[in-house]
Structures are given as structure tokens and as C-alpha cells.
Design a protein around this nucleic acid. Structure first.
Length: 421
RNA sequence: UGACCUAUGGUGUAAUGGUAGCACAACAGAUUUUGGUUCUGUUUGUCUAGGUUCGAAUCCUGGUAGGUCAA
């Protein structure tokens, strides 16, 4: 029986190098392919062109491991599927996650197809996550599992993959800890052994985001409005709640009491209200400075406002690209920065496990994260025809439209969706 | 234009006449394959001109600027 053929996406980093080595050990027929997705240096810090170094190193690794090496230029796809999406999201005042898209559209789509054209059965990457397969009603079903290194788990970035994509994916280092991967690379004396971990947008590199975005989005001066410390969210059940009434409902958790209250809300739209982003108006606060364009900011952001004189740091609590306003609040605990719930539109939800997909009026408890490396949060998912509401046990700081919420059952990533608000 | 008050880094503030400190911002490094968060570190100041004093941010005088009350 011929060995299964795997093509590794060799990036020039340690993780994919070790992944390639492990696949060889496992007896696969291994080849390597380096993908170039970006060659523009506009807005790049240090202005150099790191991908050339990466390519050289990737070639060295392939040579040392004695595997065939391929090169592919996917920058046209990358620009269309990832960079254009970034710009359009920022333009709408949302904060996109390019790396999630990069995995869905490039590594496990365009790149995968190129590998299949070369006769590959699988594509492998150096992601810190794991995969296994179970039978569900006689159908083989793949599960996406967190990487064993709790510090490096990258399953979040793969939260938009489909069963089909997963069926072709291998993650050879997902069961290892980062130091173990480094050790293997050192023992093999791989040129990547001591290479620093990459950072920044996966192929673009570390950029000065405002500069990068200004290629497409015009700078436009506007007001920064500070909401007072005693700000109370308006136009939501939160404002209308009567604390005594809620506490008498008998739930021991404040957010779940809110949820009970929302459900009993006379207007029948309590849940919607609970998950609604706070809507701010200039009359809620006062102008304390100027910014260069509301779409360059993101909810939860602390740096880059350039306004001092406060006891605690200012955080962006909301942006309004229509009126070009940035709303800020002082301190982590500011009421406007913390919310009990969020909403994901029906057509922006994605289930890695189709058989676990929720239907209208289903409710389920999951562990949720709303950004990379955030500790998993207990939450209740409530499905309605319009989409999924996620009500957290604890209020969440910096719920950011455009980012992905990913829900887990233990270590398995079950589904994800774009945070609508 | 009459009286009174104030003037300290980029911002907000602290210092019985005795080494100008804190917070925020900014910058740098660490962490992080998104945005961003978090941690560590660094830089920057007594409005101006005189005077009193061993010694002035502090006391005195003039100037300048801002504010409050006065029509």
C-alpha cells in the first residue's frame, strides 16, 4: 500500500519544521511547500522583507530533511480574501481577525487545493491544535481539539474550518508543548531551532496598523468623548432592571439573574436588549480630545488615544464610524466596557460539528472565548431564528464586533461566529 | 477697565523655605501568529524678570497668561 502523501506548509519557523520531521517519522510521504502571500512592505515595521529570509530557511529545512520543496505565490488570493476583508471590516467600524480568515481561505483552501493538485492526501501545518475522528450516526466526523500546550493553543485561529477542510488537515505538533518542539528542533540541529516565534498578522508581519490602514482608509479628525465614571448603560434591560427585583429571582449569578429578568421582560425583546451593544451619544459624555479616524480604533483598546491626566487608563468603549466619534471610559471596570452578552447573526455562525448545530429555541452551556488566548468563559448559548445569543456567567470586557467568538465543549472547539455586537 | 485667585513635564496633580514625587500619556523592551490586552523600564517640568535667603516651586516686587467676582 502506497504511503499517504502529505504536504507541509513550511513557513520558515520552528513549528512547521518540526511538524515536517514528525510526519516523516510517522511514515508519510512528505513534501514541503512555502507559500508567499504578501510582498508589500507598506506600513511594515523595520521596512525589511522578512519573507525572503523565511523562504531561504524553509528551503534549508527541506533540504536537511531531504524532502521535495515547492513554492507557491498566493498573494493575489490573500489580498482578495484576507486583506480586502480587513479593510472593509475596519471601514464598517468592526475589528476583523485576518488570521482566522487566512486559515479558512488560504491555508485550508487555496493552499490546500494547490497541494491536492500535487497529489497530496493531506495538508499539515505547525498549528498548536489537535484533531481526532469519531463516528456520528455512521458518518466519520472530525473534532478540532485544543493544543496540549495551554499556553500556545491555536485552535481559536482554526475556528472557521469545515468538516471537509478538517478531513484534509494534519496537526503533527498539537500534542507537544512549545519547549518540546524547540528541543526536537535543537536535537536535529534545524536552522529554525532558535528562531523567534513569528508575530503580527500572519503573512504581513508586524505592522503599524494605522499606517497600514491608511493605504485605504482616509484619516479624518473627530471627537473623543469620555463617558463619566458613573455612566449607566441606557436603552437596555440593564438600565431598566430593578436590582431588587432581579435579585429576588433567586439566581446566584448576576448575569443569569439579568437573563431571567430579560426573559420576563414585558416587551418580549429582553434577550435582544440584553445582547445589544450599548449605544452612546455625545450627550452621554464630554469631548476630551481628537482622534484621526474612528475606524482606526477598536473596542477595548488602551494605547494610542494620546490623552493623559486620568487616574486610570482610558479604554475605547465604542466607536461610531457614521459620526466619526470614539467613546472612551476610564478604567477596566467602566460600565460601558463590560457587557453581559453578545449576539451573532444566523448567517455568521459556523459549526465545525454540524450534528451539534443548534436550532431555534435550543439552549446550551458552552465555554466561550471572544479573543485569542482568552481563558475560556462559562456561557449560555441561546439560539433564535435570527441568530445566537451568548450570555456569559461573568460580564465580559471589550466585546468587539468583528472578532470571532468560539465555543468549546471541554477541549473541543464546536463552533464559532462573528460577533455582531 | 476695579478687586480677588491661579500659574509645576504632553495632561491632571503633590511637595512645614532644604534632593521636585505620583498618575495618565508618549517611547522602548518582554509576552502574543488578529485588533488588542498584560508586564517591565525610560524620557520630559517649577510662566517670565528681578529681589530676600547659606538655600526659593514655596517669601517679596514688576511683567505675562488664564480664571472668578464686579455692570
Amino acid at each position: 500500500m502506497a504511503n499517504k502523501k502529505v504536504i507541509v506548509g513550511l513557513s520558515g519557523g520552528v513549528d512547521s519544521s518540526v511538524a515536517a520531521y514528525l510526519l516523516i517519522q510517522q511514515g508519510y510521504d512528505v513534501e514541503a511547500m512555502f507559500m508567499q502571500n504578501w510582498h508589500d512592505t507598506t506600513g511594515t515595521l523595520h521596512g525589511d522583507c522578512p519573507w525572503k529570509d523565511d523562504l531561504t530557511i524553509a528551503k534549508l529545512v527541506a533540504k536537511q530533511l531531504n524532502i521535495p520543496f515547492h513554492f507557491i505565490d498566493l498573494s493575489a488570493d490573500y489580498r482578495k480574501k484576507v486583506v480586502d476583508y480587513m479593510f472593509s471590516e475596519y471601514e464598517k467600524g468592526r475589528t476583523p481577525n485576518p488570521d482566522v480568515l487566512c486559515n479558512r481561505e488560504i491555508k485550508f483552501d487555496a493552499f490546500l487545493k494547490a497541494c491536492e493538485d500535487l497529489g497530496a492526501d493531506y495538508v499539515a501545518t505547525g498549528h498548536y491544535c489537535r484533531k481526532d475522528s469519531i463516528m456520528v450516526n455512521g458518518v466519520e466526523t472530525h473534532r478540532l481539539l485544543a493544543g496540549s500546550d495551554p499556553n500556545k493553543d491555536q485552535s481559536y485561529f482554526l475556528c472557521q474550518l469545515s468538516q471537509k477542510q478538517l478531513s484534509k488537515a494534519l496537526f503533527p505538533i498539537g500534542h507537544l508543548l512549545k519547549p518540546e518542539v524547540r528541543d526536537i528542533a535543537k536535537q536535529l540541529n534545524l536552522p529554525t531551532a532558535d528562531k523567534k516565534d513569528s508575530q503580527g498578522i500572519c503573512f504581513v508581519g508586524k505592522v503599524d496598523l494605522p499606517v497600514f490602514l491608511q493605504q485605504q482608509l482616509k484619516a479624518k479628525k473627530g471627537d473623543i468623548i469620555e463617558l463619566p465614571k458613573d455612566y449607566k448603560p441606557t436603552s437596555s434591560v440593564i438600565a431598566r432592571r430593578n436590582d431588587e427585583a432581579i435579585s429576588s429571582l433567586g439566581e446566584d449569578n448576576a448575569n443569569l439573574r439579568l437573563l431571567r429578568f430579560a426573559r420576563n421582560d414585558g416587551n418580549g425583546d429582553g434577550l435582544t436588549q440584553l445582547a445589544l451593544p450599548y449605544s452612546f451619544s455625545p450627550t452621554n459624555g464630554k469631548v476630551i480630545g481628537q482622534h484621526n479616524g474612528a475606524h482606526f480604533y477598536t473596542v477595548g483598546q488602551r494605547k494610542g488615544l494620546g490623552i493623559g491626566g486620568h487616574i486610570e487608563s482610558l479604554f475605547v468603549v465604542g466607536i461610531d464610524v457614521e459620526s466619526n466619534l470614539v467613546y472612551v471610559g476610564e478604567g477596566h471596570e467602566h460600565a460601558a466596557l463590560n457587557r453581559p452578552a453578545l449576539f451573532i447573526k444566523n448567517n455568521e455562525t459556523h459549526w465545525i460539528r454540524p450534528n451539534l448545530q443548534m436550532n431555534a429555541d435550543d439552549e446550551r452551556d458552552y465555554l466561550v472565548r471572544i479573543r485569542y488566548r482568552q481563558p475560556l468563559q462559562k456561557a449560555k448559548l441561546i439560539c433564535r431564528t435570527e441568530g445566537i445569543y451568548i450570555v456569559f456567567d461573568e460580564p465580559q470586557r471589550g466585546i468587539t464586533p468583528g472578532q470571532f467568538a468560539a465555543w468549546y465543549d471541554g477541549e473541543e472547539l464546536v463552533g464559532s461566529g462573528v460577533i455582531n455586537g
